[in-house]
Design a protein around this nucleic acid. Sequence first.
DNA 1: CTCATTTGACCTGGG
DNA 2: TCCCAGGTCAAATGA
Length: 331
Amino acid sequence: MDTARRSPVCLDLMVGLPMVREPSPARCAGMRADAGIVGSACGRAASTTMTNGEAKILEAKFTEVSEENRRLTEMIGYLYANNQNFARQGPEGEGEQPASTAASPTSPVGKKRGRESMETSDSGDANSDKKINMVEAEHVDVKSPLSNGTCRRIKVKRVCTRIDPSDTSLVVKDGYQWRKYGQKVTRDNPSPRAYFRCAFAPSCPVKKKVQRSAEDSSVVEATYEGEHNHPRPTGASELPSCAAQGGGSVPCSISINSSGPTITLDLTKNGGGVQVVEAGEAQPDLKKVCREVASPEFRAALVEQMARALTGDRKFTDALAAAILRKLPDY
DNA sequence: CTCATTTGACCTGGG
DNA sequence: TCCCAGGTCAAATGA
């Protein structure tokens, strides 16, 4: 990369290209084609015995998956932009929330706890150093019924965080103060789910559910419901971004969540940290997208694209070089 | 004594 | 109506 020549300090992004696992033969034909990758061994083997009709079908399918691939690329770009935004603003995009949302239907009513002092310290402080990796998630709006029969949309956001598996605290540090009000073991996951409320403002309707992934105990999934109706507490510097883990603004990992499957792409982990956690009844299209995103080729391409985008960003490389130079002893 | 967390009981909605 | 599972409450507990 020519960045090394431009910059006073050679910049070599150790993105950690994931180990490419050999796909199973069964997935070979479908998945590789779905990912829009041509020239694979599978493709060559298939082409030798292909008739005209099959070729046309495959061509049509290829066009279709190419289009899908393009949409996926756009989606990745969108997620990347979201990730940057997330790192700047925090998980809920606080500070822009109108006060009217204080009367959200999710705000606890009825029986009230006697002690309502909200002078808690951030419960994540003690364990924040155990956080290893935090990945971006997607906003999902769900409708919440109001008492008058209408529906109001509540912002739901899911964030996957990689933590030390020995850490049982279920604390996801996001810059806000949370009060735990319950814990429950759910049916589909042996790990308990912890329930938190925003402790900064009594009227804040935001709730958070935190639960370890059933697939990987080192991954905790935090689900935020609602939007904060107050600014981020002062002094809350930790952000759920990979930037906090010493990687600058590098989007070291991406998580795509929807109401169906949860995909975690951990591109920094050797051997590849891709998980496809299929929750509930995933739609066939969604499953297909999951398979595409999980493919080694896709991941490799994604890493390459991100590395290219970052190293091509003069501002980023200069800032990084400057930061490194500051750390070097004076000669 | 104060306060956050724990945890069993209770509530509620969906099937 | 009953059952089940998720969500919430609040007394107990411990720091």
